[in-house]
């Protein structure tokens, strides 16, 4: 065993400090140490995107990052996107448009989609499919995921316009 490191993270706005071996993968830090179980482990081999979180403004597969690498970072997981009483427009749209079936991929999908819409608030279907290519879903056939993201984009753009 190597010596433990002192690691500081800010997860969903909350500061976290702990000692961990550097080899600890961030997905385990989140799920097992911090009990943030929204990000899932689908493949553990960097392919499925179920573990996607936002780290310093980037969508990252947290099974492919050491907690040590994230030391000092700001992290957002699905838990930091909307609440059960006030769903994020993406969450609302996934619910409304059947963007999920078993729900296993959904936290990663929605977390990735928040970043996609931030970078491209008005994506075409093709841009959505390309921008979501790092997230795999075994259930939906993707059609309703695309529809949900389109609906959320429309909703968010309308809200932005109304606010202006």
């Amino acid at each position: 065993m190597s010596k433990k490191m002192h690691i500081k993270l800010n997860v969903n706005g909350k500061d976290e400090e702990f000692l961990a071996e550097p080899r600890e993968l961030l997905i385990y830090t989140l799920r097992e140490r911090l009990n943030i179980t929204g990000p899932h482990i689908g493949c553990e081999t960097s392919h499925c995107g179920a573990c996607t979180v936002t780290i310093n403004g980037k969508s990252v597969k947290s099974c492919t990052m050491f907690a040590a690498q994230a030391d000092g970072a700001e992290i957002t997981t699905i838990e930091g996107i909307g609440t059960p009483d006030a769903l994020h427009p993406l969450q609302e749209a996934f619910k409304e448009h059947h963007g999920l079936q078993c729900g296993y991929c959904t936290p990663g999908m929605i977390t990735r989609a928040t970043k996609l819409l931030e970078e491209n608030p008005n994506p075409t279907e093709e841009e959505i499919r390309f921008g979501m290519a790092g997230n795999i879903c075994r259930c939906t056939g993707y059609q309703n995921i695309v529809k949900s993201i389109q609906a959320a984009a429309a909703e968010m753009n309308a809200a932005k316009e109304a606010a202006e």
């Binding site: 190597s2 490191m5 080899r23 993968l25 081999t45 040590a68």
Partner: peptide, 11 residues
């Protein structure tokens, strides 16, 4: 799928 232990440096 846990790597072997290592020392981590961030120079």
């Amino acid at each position: 799928m846990i790597p072997a232990a290592f020392e981590y440096y961030r120079p």
